[in-house]
Design a protein around this nucleic acid. Sequence first.
DNA 1: CCTTGTGAAAACTTTCACAGCT
DNA 2: AGCTGTGAAAGTTTTCACAAGG
Lengths: 208, 208
Amino acid sequence: MKKRYIPEDTIKRLPVYLRNLLNLKKEGKKIVSSKEITFSLNILPVQFRKDLSYFGKFGKRGVGYDVDNLIKTLEKIIGIDRKIKVIVVGVGRLGSALIRYKGFSSMNMEIVGAFDNDQNKIGKKIEKIKIMSMDQMPEFLKKNKIKVGIICVPFDKAQKVAEHMVKSGIKAILNFAPTRLNLSKNMFVNYVDMASELGSLIFKLKNL
Amino acid sequence: MKKRYIPEDTIKRLPVYLRNLLNLKKEGKKIVSSKEITFSLNILPVQFRKDLSYFGKFGKRGVGYDVDNLIKTLEKIIGIDRKIKVIVVGVGRLGSALIRYKGFSSMNMEIVGAFDNDQNKIGKKIEKIKIMSMDQMPEFLKKNKIKVGIICVPFDKAQKVAEHMVKSGIKAILNFAPTRLNLSKNMFVNYVDMASELGSLIFKLKNL
DNA sequence: CCTTGTGAAAACTTTCACAGCT
DNA sequence: AGCTGTGAAAGTTTTCACAAGG
């Protein structure tokens, strides 16, 4: 595979395309055009075609894209052609909600373990997911070949927790704590910052 | 076409700066440089200064920024110099977690109402927040002058719920449901798409 | 020295326009 | 005719380089 520079925004759109294709498949669609794929997404058809062009040619000129093939292609591109196992650290309200969240499975992601430092929680289960202590993390990650983790601890615990995750073998983190993480450059971190998202909405409301 | 004076990414960074300044204030800092402000944020100092420059001059050359003043300035710019009231629609696990989330108040945001169509939930309370029926929404929004709402319903209900919110007076939506919303162009919508965030992390893990 | 603020350049992303295939 | 794929152009954002001031 030839390595080329892929825009960050392209990467973020790939899962959006995939989910829409899964919906179109459920509706019985066999062949779709770039126009149909992007219709409800506020994205131009050419944007989709350009995004795909970073990875190859997957359509038929004059026809469109085979839904099943394109789903498989996108799953492969994103790296979710096999089930990806993920852990959650911090089993508060938000962490529990994520463990029970149904939106991951259609994207071939699965939360398979949870960690917390609260002795009252360790050993208990949420929907078949065992809550483990922090020092059980390295072994669990190794045994299950897990590289991706979600942080759901309070903001003042997030940095320490993140460092522990890195030491335990995590390579990519989705951080729900409202703070930026300082980790080595080879780590991948995405942020879900709910207050900031609301803040930017409020700004637009007042100014645009 | 849609020439925007302020870049979208600048808008998204403003709340991040503000929160960091609130932390620096808590640590006792009175004066800070752009370098200190951006140190833990993976943002270059000049990016911060450029972002601020869209709104005016707030620093002192050779010195830096007065923390208290800059906090007030950013709160005013973002539009949260007064408490902003927000509603949640959909009181499942995620909606409940958001209602109890402590990260909004330091940013002057407050969830003051919750809506659901489940008769078993309507009338109950979560942390002093009354759960109301969907048809109580217009009156509640008008009485409390609310323009911002959060969607936490299943993906197949989100479009209808969003349309109801718009009809009831909502102007800006933070959507946690994994689907894009089709609303009129004068509506503001931000998306929190957890599976897509994980997906883009997995992509980077495999490819970068 | 130290900082901020900013026009200009560089880098990056989106959109256009059309070639090429069904 | 209809749709994909893509180089080039247009548009946008970040970074550079440095003037200006404490």
